[in-house]
Write a protein that binds this DNA or RNA. Structure first.
Length: 567
RNA sequence: GGGCCGGUAGCUCAGUUAGGGAGAGCGACGGACUCUUAACCCGUCGGUCGCGUGUUCAAAUCGCGCCCGGCCCGCCA
């Protein structure tokens, strides 16, 4: 390592800023981390378009962890665009990698997670060791497994309003984009071995960093017997491929491959991508921070004669306190999340500081929404907290994104957010008009609320409803449209009849609530038993929301006949 | 074992880059609403800022040592 090593740490959001009086971009504190990253990029004085990269190897499921690669880069891209730069955000699908083992779970085209039993698993098993782009789509829809997976990521980016350019690694090889890089590597084998050997023990005097695809069986091979950089070819033997404890058998074929008929190993492929795609910035997970990043930096400079991009390490997050694991089923996809959260809430989650380990807890997703709502209120100057307000003023415009469907003359400050758990309560009734009425009665929607704001506010109800159902939590009650099957004591039944009379006479929710207590006492019924009877009649459950006021908002005929057990 | 990154209230987190008030929401508890029944309102409780130590008039924040967790240091990505 030379003197530049100090600045090669990928932890640019943790390190103390380097003192550099000549650097006009290093202008100190930022409330939004993406600004600090953008400073680093601008300090390199890059030429437009600035290119931001993310990348992922096709696995079975595009889960929310992969979204880090998309969203972290996106916020930086947007900040740079605001500063007047042209920015491209590319996303490489590292799809020339071989399928090394069968995934336990797959996501279908809609993002729904399915097991291997639901697809043609045998087709996958027969293709172990082959590039993802050479394996049929298990769902039979796209041209390959890789294409299927890339389409999932593309769809997720679209759903999150992030414009990305998908780049197939296989296509880059096929088009010859890597030809020069491979030529460079194979022309200086000693140099590459020296550099890479400092990071990887497997690199010895025999090591050739190029993996041809066997012309006979199509698997990726690791045994190169001769190289001819000038001719642009290598000689190889299709030997066994060790994958963890397993072995993918080679066919024994010996042949010649061009640079377009193979791939670089990851440690070299990554810096080669930086060079070929002219990457200025790349966020990556902490697993890369101490492994491939330092070696990539070194290889970029010593082998490819290029400067590595500005890095940024993000912490992984957990789901319900556990690490994400598609095989263990502990994953959540973007489509799933968007069934319970507005897009802006998901984007907000990724606008939070990348260096913080975070837990996404579906059971208590209302907490995340509450925090978003507060963040939004801070943007509109409604929260007495200077720090939060500074962060919100900077980050909120990037978080809400372009997706809001509002009239041109809408004042964003007029937006309405129903508290998420209240929205879940409204989700107990199905009728949209009744939902709105309840929200108005509770004062969440004012008389002068614009139509678009009401529509947006009520959009949360269905999401909260889905959440309640999916987690089967204390909001998962459903107003019963038909009379549930309930056994009632005679005195409870008599009390219900009395209560029905009170409601029939016309009274408001508060009075109904009061009448419930009075009626119960009149009939010598335990108050709790009486409430339970009410909950069973209306929700087919022993508990529920504050009942009297809830009933007061429902249609009177319906309430009366239900209390009388008539319908 | 070595390196890197984290550790702030029961939970989720802000604050750490530039040293000066320890904070928010939720939960819990209590109250209010003629009313033990979950939405809304008011209030209270709740933290040795992982531990120790040093520097400083002053440390969650800076230095050093340690503890705990994650990642990397094999392969692969």
């Amino acid at each position: 390592m030379d003197g530049g090593a100090m600045t090669d740490s990928p932890h640019i959001l943790s390190d103390r800023p380097t003192e550099d009086a000549d650097d006009p971009a290093a202008d100190g504190f930022h409330d939004f981390w993406a600004d600090a990253v953008a400073d680093e990029i601008e300090a390199r004085d890059p030429t437009d378009p600035i290119v931001i990269k993310g990348g992922v190897s096709p696995s079975g499921v595009a889960h929310l962890g992969n979204v880090n690669e998309i969203m972290r880069g996106h916020f930086v891209a947007e900040v740079l665009r605001e500063r007047g730069h042209e920015v491209r955000q590319v996303f490489t699908s590292d799809d020339k990698d071989p399928l090394r083992k069968l995934p336990r779970k797959l996501a279908d085209a809609d993002g729904e997670i399915v097991g291997l039993g639901d697809v043609d698993a045998g087709a996958l098993g027969r293709n172990l060791g082959k590039p993802y782009t050479a394996i049929p789509d298990p769902f039979g829809e796209r041209e390959s497994y890789a294409a299927h997976f890339a389409a999932l990521l593309r769809a997720d980016a679209d759903r999150l309003d992030v414009p990305i350019e998908m780049v197939s690694n296989t296509a880059l090889y096929a088009d010859g984009a890597f030809d020069e890089a491979i030529h460079t590597v194979l022309s200086d084998l000693d140099g590459v071995r020296d550099t890479l050997g400092a990071y990887q023990n497997k690199v010895d005097d025999e090591y050739v960093p190029f993996n041809p695809v066997c012309a006979e069986c199509g698997t990726i091979t690791e045994t190169v017997t001769a190289v001819d950089p000038a001719a642009g070819t290598v000689e190889y033997a299709c030997t066994d491929l060790e994958v963890g404890d397993d072995v993918i058998e080679g066919c024994g074929h010996e042949g010649t491959a061009t640079f377009r008929e193979g791939k670089l190993p990851w440690r070299l492929e990554w810096p080669a991508q930086w060079d070929v795609l002219d990457i200025d910035f790349e966020p990556f997970g902490k697993d890369h921070a101490e492994g491939s990043w330092p070696s990539g930096v070194d290889l970029a400079r010593t082998v490819f004669d290029t400067e590595p991009p500005v890095p940024m390490v993000y912490e992984w997050f957990t789901l319900g306190g556990e690490t994400l694991s598609s095989s263990a089923g502990n994953v959540v996809t973007v489509p799933e999340l968007l069934e319970i959260l507005e897009v802006e809430v998901v984007r907000y989650f990724f606008a939070l500081h990348p260096k913080r380990g975070r837990d996404l807890d579906i059971q208590r997703i209302d907490q995340l929404v509450d925090r978003f709502d507060r963040f939004e209120r801070a943007y509109f100057g409604e929260v007495d907290n200077a720090e939060l307000t500074r962060f919100a003023e900077r980050a909120y415009p990037f978080v809400v994104g372009p997706s809001l469907d509002r009239p041109a003359d809408a004042d964003p400050a007029d937006r309405i957010r129903l508290p998420y758990t209240f929205a879940a309560v409204l989700g107990m009734v199905e009728d949209p008009a009744l939902r709105e009425q309840l929200a108005r009665d509770e004062g969440h929607i004012g008389d002068d609320a614009p139509e678009w704001a009401v529509r947006e506010a009520l959009g949360r109800v269905e999401r909260a409803r889905t959440w309640a159902e999916r987690t089967d939590n204390e909001y998962n009650y459903r107003l019963q449209t038909t009379l549930p099957d309930v056994d009632l004591d005679d005195d409870v039944a008599a009390a219900l009849d009395d209560l029905a009379d009170v409601v029939a006479a016309g009274t408001d929710g508060e009075a109904i609530q009061a009448a419930m207590y009075d009626t119960a006492r009149d009939h010598d019924v335990e108050v709790s038993d009486f409430f339970e009877a009410g909950y069973r009649l209306f929700f087919d459950q022993p508990q529920g929301p504050r009942l009297g006021e809830f009933l007061g908002d429902l249609e009177r005929e319906y309430v009366v006949s239900r209390l009388r057990r008539e319908a």
